[in-house]
């Protein structure tokens, strides 16, 4: 009886090692054709943003009035030029940098705020009421109006656009995280950590947070689409990127005046916005289906 009880063979793990969750999710995602198209678009966009100076010849902000309003497929400017003679391809490529950076910054800030509020609200019953009422309050503003209000206070710039969009992302993120926390904190492994004397902070950060990553990732992907669209909308309204910054929304706004003579000035940035938003949305949908089709987002 002194020695420990040996394991019998039936208890040994099955020979076929179970695959890591990440690989399983990735495989499921790659079976979804729409999501694969979305992924390709996103990868292309990231490539464009990373290698912008290498794949463009012209400076996106340099004016050249001698060759203004060239149509699509002109020599040297395959997407034409705008009314100041700036190369549209250059501006689209550099614009993808702005869209992605603003989107990532806005979503990250929104996640930091939303996850913190959601964790606290879900974990501490006493804070829950207060936090959720603040969230309800933020929800009651229409998104773009809230963003415009924040920009009106902070002033027009791309950083402020990112902040405005992030504040507007906080409430929905907080709700999603809170929902997951509420269900996870009742799990036995949380009880086990409490019985081992773990602090609330340790339980929240090391044990609850990693287990609500799935909905957070899906939310973040879908939010990227909304954030990029909102950046374009706000820039279109003149509240975001200021000329001559090559931003897609601002490009549409400037091209509007030449809608009849040079329609490509509005159509091309419009297509760029549409494809990006579409890509992030389908990837988000695909991720949700791959991780958990019953997820509540």
């Amino acid at each position: 009886m002194a020695e420990t009880v040996p394991l019998v063979s039936s208890q040994m793990p099955k020979k076929k090692k179970k695959q890591h969750e990440f690989i399983i999710t990735a495989k499921k995602l790659l079976k979804n054709k729409l999501a694969v198209i979305g992924l390709i678009i996103i990868i292309i966009q990231i490539g464009m943003a990373l290698f912008a100076p290498m794949i463009t010849v012209h400076d996106p902000v340099k004016q050249n009035l001698a060759s203004s309003e060239l149509p699509v497929l002109s020599e040297g400017h395959w997407l034409g030029t705008d009314n100041y003679g700036r190369d549209v391809w250059s501006r689209i490529v550099h614009g993808s940098r702005i869209s992605l950076i603003v989107g990532i910054v806005a979503v990250s800030l929104g996640l930091i705020g939303g996850v913190t509020l959601g964790l606290l609200g879900g974990y501490y019953k006493k804070l829950d009421g207060i936090i959720m009422r603040i969230v309800d309050l933020l929800f009651s503003f229409p998104g773009i109006l809230l963003a415009m209000l924040i920009i009106a206070v902070l002033g027009t710039s791309l950083i402020n656009v990112a902040i405005a969009i992030s504040i507007w992302s906080i409430p929905s993120c907080a709700r999603i995280v809170r929902g997951s926390v509420l269900s996870i904190k009742e799990k036995e492994y949380i009880m086990a950590m409490k019985s081992l004397g773990a602090s609330d902070f340790r339980i929240m950060v090391k044990h609850i947070l990693p287990n609500c990553f799935a909905p957070i990732i899906v939310f973040a992907t879908m939010r990227m689409a909304t954030a990029i669209l909102s950046t374009a909308s706000l820039s279109y309204l003149g509240l975001g990127a200021q000329p001559p910054t090559p931003e897609w929304g601002a490009m549409i706004s400037q091209g509007q005046a030449f809608m009849w003579s040079s329609p490509h000035l509005t159509i091309i940035p419009g297509i760029a916005i549409m494809l990006t938003v579409f890509a992030f949305n389908v990837v988000g949908d695909g991720l949700r289906d791959a991780i958990d089709p019953n997820m509540d987002i």
Partner: peptide, 16 residues
Amino acid sequence: MQMIFQDPFASLNPRQ
């Protein structure tokens, strides 16, 4: 004082 829990599938953090 320690505790051993009922459900061995629920008492361990699946991501650790």
